[in-house]
Design a protein around this nucleic acid. Structure first.
Lengths: 211, 211
DNA sequence: ATTTATTTCGTACAACTGTACTAAAAAGAG
DNA sequence: CTCTTTTTAGTACAGTTGTACGAAATAAAT
């Protein structure tokens, strides 16, 4: 038998090199050749694990969205009833905002992907799933404020009033992500915190104790 | 003297061909050669009016932002005191949303430009100006609801409370633009109208008669 | 009609891109 | 050590891109 390498971990190495490159030189610099150079290998060796560039991008995108989802889910799992919900939710939503180099790169990719969202391909499906999961997170937040604890059925749409509030929050969150990414000089961490906290307080005032 | 052509109108023709191409084939298809083909001329003739691709893009972007600004300003100029402010403002903000082919192309470009926002170049400055003008529009809306008529000094920041409300509205508007552009199947015109109207009503309830 | 400056075009070059094909290197099994 | 299969590397091709250069076409002025 010949030399055998762990395909899965090798693919992860390649995806890691891709995102390192994207973070340093911008997404426009992501080409098969540049990723190979970043990894220190020849372009042909990449082709042994990803036969086409689209396959590479799909895998790398999936791993990016996965890591972001895991971060968010871990935070959600640590929810404790009875605390300051507005402050806690503020930290939760900040987890998805571009507040350091790594998350800035994530958001840059997220924004770039939005443009390809209409082609119906694998990338489009992944973005659709991302949107639905974010919507569930917003339902989690809205029901937490409304009931004092999150509901378990956030996978399905809520009643009209709370579902609308969830979509409003989601839209606001997307806008905050966009502005924080593209205008960091205006949207400082303290302004981001102020905006997020204010919105959640106003939302809390609208929905609390009316379930 | 040789044949003379109006340079300014020729440049506008070229910019028009560029946006026609971007709307039909996507921004990625915008290259010097493709714009020339769209116009029916040779690539070299473009170079006679724009010596570099960056010059072409800067001019085309400026003309795009100008036309959008004119549309918005015309609407603002037609404001009449005493009507249904929420409904009127809703139509105003919808003017900037991707509700037809042309505005969808505009928003697609607007989103693409956000990624280059950190390079400090001419494009970055144009986007900075765009953000400031949008912020003024949000101050216009907030003061209209608060006072029953827009204030004249929207060029400067308002007091803390209303400035924060303006930035919140701006952020929400940006998010709505993003989502409407990238998820048209979810963000139908009727949902967009519902979200916008709801947000403006909530804003109205917060700021009205408290100036 | 000739001159002349402006506007267009054709060609060409160097740098990229994704991908295909073939040869070399590497390492476990016999 | 030898074989064999996986993994890497090298080379090459066709396509794209921005840009440069020089020659043709054009139309107004004389």
């Amino acid at each position: 038998m010949p030399r055998v390498v762990d395909h899965e971990s090798r693919k992860n190495d390649i995806a890691g090199a891709l995102w390192r490159l994207a973070e340093r030189d911008g997404i426009a610099a992501v080409s098969v050749r540049n990723v190979a150079k970043e990894l220190g290998h020849s372009p042909s060796s990449l082709r042994h694990y990803f036969s086409t560039q689209a396959e590479l991008m799909e895998f790398a995108l999936a791993s990016l969205l996965d890591s972001a989802r895991v971060r968010l889910e871990n935070r959600v799992a640590s929810y404790a009833r009875g605390g300051d919900d507005v402050a806690w939710l503020s930290e939760l939503f900040k987890e998805g905002l571009p507040l350091d180099g790594r998350r800035s790169a994530e958001v840059e990719v997220w924004m770039a992907l939005h443009r390809h969202d209409r082609d119906g391909g694998v990338l489009s499906q992944a973005m659709g799933r991302e949107w639905r999961e974010s919507q569930q997170l917003c339902r989690f937040a809205v029901t937490s404020l409304a009931d004092g604890a999150p509901r378990a059925d956030v996978r399905d749409a809520l009643d009209d009033r709370l579902e609308l509030e969830s979509t409003l929050l989601h839209t606001f969150w997307d806008g905050l992500t966009l502005d924080a990414s593209s205008r960091p000089s205006v949207f400082t961490p303290s302004l981001i915190d102020e905006l997020l906290t204010t919105y959640l307080c106003q939302l809390d005032a609208r929905v609390r104790n009316r379930a």
